[in-house]
Amino acid sequence: MLRYSGRRLLGAIPLLLGIVTLTFILLHLAPGDPTTAYFNPNIPPDVIEQMRRNLGLDRPLPVQYLDWLRSFFTGHFGYSFSQHRPVAAVIGDALPNTLLLSGISLVLIFVLGCAAGVVQAVRQYSAADQVLTLLALAIYSVPGFWLGLMLILLVSSPVLSGWLHLPISGMVSIDHEYLGWWGRVADRARHLVLPVIALGLASAAGVARYMRGSMLEVVGQDYIRTARAKGLPERRVILGHALRNALLPIVSLLGLYLPLLFGGTVVIEYVFSWPGMGRLLYNAILARDYPVVMAATFLFGALVVLGNLLADLLYAAVDPRVRYDGR
């Protein structure tokens, strides 16, 4: 198991390096540079030149690349033009918020998706199955940003806003500091509800479809027949024997959903004014705040790679065939 993890870890490093490099290349492909944002006919050209020199934009590309690489070891990613703070600080503020949002969404995706999939498989061809199949397909086709807006609409409608108080923007309420410990947790939780649903529902539908297929395949296996022949109660057969096997391909699926999840945070954080990396990236792009854009883009890629790594390790943890084979 240790060997397997070590190997996977080692394999991730070149990928991370590739992401660093690709980010750098992408950013420097663009015409213009950060100073174009400040371009103003009233500003004399040599002031702009000075700005460029200050930002290190006049040095040759390979040097800039090495600087960029070095920043990973020093932790100093430069300075954000638009926020006038070190990039590291800006990212440091935003990252945990995105992780919170994505993490809870991931939980929703898998719990809801697996539950729906299992129900469908166990009651194959029943009314519930057919309805859920169509519903899952419909939900899977819904754009996250639109779902977010419709949820906001729903919650703000006169019918629901009377008794359901769900916030539609931000992470915390204005009076957050004045609430007790429990109040603060509840406040955060309430702010999470709508964004998490908007971010995760479509993917949950996708997982439900896969889970249904996986369960159906597992339930047809010989060892399930053996379990039934032993006289085990059906619940034990489904939950204890079938489910554990059906979850395996879903765990490896985790890796595929991560890019979608993180990509989704860009729009969802925008819709719900959630102070996370997605919104940060978007605003930085509009402001041509290159250091932030580079750092954020890199981070998204790195999060996906790390997430995949974790998913692989998780898979090894739950599938004994991988664990004891060293493969």
């Binding site: 992401i19 992408l26 890019p259 990509g263 860009v266 990236l281 792009i285 883009t297 998204f300 890629g301």
Partner: peptide
């Protein structure tokens, strides 16, 4: 490598530049 980036992130970065 390319699959490691969320598609939307690549899209907005490329388009906005």
């Amino acid at each position: 490598l390319l699959l490691s980036f969320p598609r939307l992130v690549l899209l907005i970065t490329l388009v906005a530049l």
